Simulated scan of single mutants.
Amino acid sequence: MNRTTRRLADGREILYFDADGSTAAHDAEDTRDLPPVSTRSQLRHDALLGEWVVVAAHRQTRTFLPPADQCPLCPSRPGRPSEVPDSDYQVVVFENRFPSLATGVDTDVPPTAPGAPFAELRPGFGRCEVVLFTSDHDQHFAGLGRDRARLVVDVWAERTAELSAIDGVEQVFCFENSGEEIGVTLSHPHGQIYAYPFVTPRVERVLASVRRHRETTGGDLFAEVVEAERTGPRVVAANDSWVAFVPAAARWPYEVQLFPTRRVPDLPALDDAQRDDLAAIYLDVLGRFAHRFDTPMPYIASWNQAPVREGREDWWLHLQLFSLRRAPGKLKYLAGSESGMGAFITDTNPEDVAEQLRAVVVP
């Protein structure tokens, strides 16, 4: 994999990634007249839940559903400069123009929120990156092909390793939102990477469950779950290095988890064979999501990686892939029980969903 580093007009970093053998120079200049990026994020601690909330009010003016001919993620063309100065690219990563977290954030914040002595405040330190999977605006991840998907896997791993090395970063999260129903504001095929200055609530809860299981039974909860699911009724696809299954207590109408069959803490720890097999099985499962109904399912792909420091020896890398689609033309809305109490009520049966996805014929 070849990497080329450049700067955009406002000073943000842009990285071009090309498969080995590429001779692209990526030397086009960003000709736009851009104001400096202004980031006023802060972290506020919810004392009752014990969780951090990112307050990023400056993001209200971010780009929202532009027409295809004004997409800021397509390559630049004469008279229409974009976020990518070059006229073509394979995979590109750049710092978000409207970041929730940033390394250059204002550090002058009071210790607590106004009138709330228990709501600790911290600067919104971190980094938010955008990952462009292809220059083709009308493409989607399921149609990238195995070579491009493998390049994206390598980019995720490279960025995870580099962001994890930033002092103050505690967790790196790679993800993709796909479909307007999910809340996507730019339709070009892309994902994002967040480098958090804290360990996220989901990862903290999973680690607590793993440790509690070990203390009470002496067992390895991750290993036992993976072993049981590999031979269970909810397997959707599998290969030499990975298994994809609908979790027994799935929260979402269509949800699949992908686990490597050998424990690794994060994407950088995957070897070449695991990365090849990941590209293959991920495209397989995404294809099933795309063809389960007459239109592709909107989805979120969420990489659950080990924290940078704590709990790495206990963690098992995995991907959550889930959709709000519960039936043709129908979405699962997170209403009172889910949004208010965090108690999920599912509209589908996990075993039935696995059977339906196995039956999908991908062209």
Rank of each mutant, 00 (worst) to 15 (best):
A301G: 11
D106A: 12
H45S: 01
L278K: 04
T185M: 13
V264I: 14
S164M: 09
F94W: 12
E338T: 01
D276N: 05
S178P: 05
W303Y: 07
D277S: 04
R230S: 13
N349P: 01
P111C: 02
T295D: 15
V308C: 02
V172N: 15
A354T: 12
L151W: 14
C74D: 07
H45A: 06
F245K: 00
F344W: 15
V285M: 05
N96G: 02
Q42L: 14
F64I: 02
D284N: 10
F222Y: 08
Y16S: 05
T107D: 12
L132H: 13
H213A: 03
Q70V: 03
T216S: 04
C74Q: 01
A238C: 04
Y282S: 03
F198C: 05
L65P: 01
F141Q: 12
D69R: 03
V91A: 06
R326C: 10
G219L: 03
A269M: 05
E224S: 12
V235L: 03
H188M: 04
V225H: 11
L34T: 09
I193C: 13
P268V: 09
W316D: 03
D10T: 07
C128D: 15
A290P: 10
R7V: 01
F322E: 01
T216K: 09
G340E: 12
I345S: 02
V199A: 11
A149V: 10
P350V: 06
F94C: 02
I281V: 14
G79T: 08
L43D: 06
R150V: 13
L267I: 08
D271Q: 11
R325C: 01
Y254G: 00
F94A: 04
P114V: 14
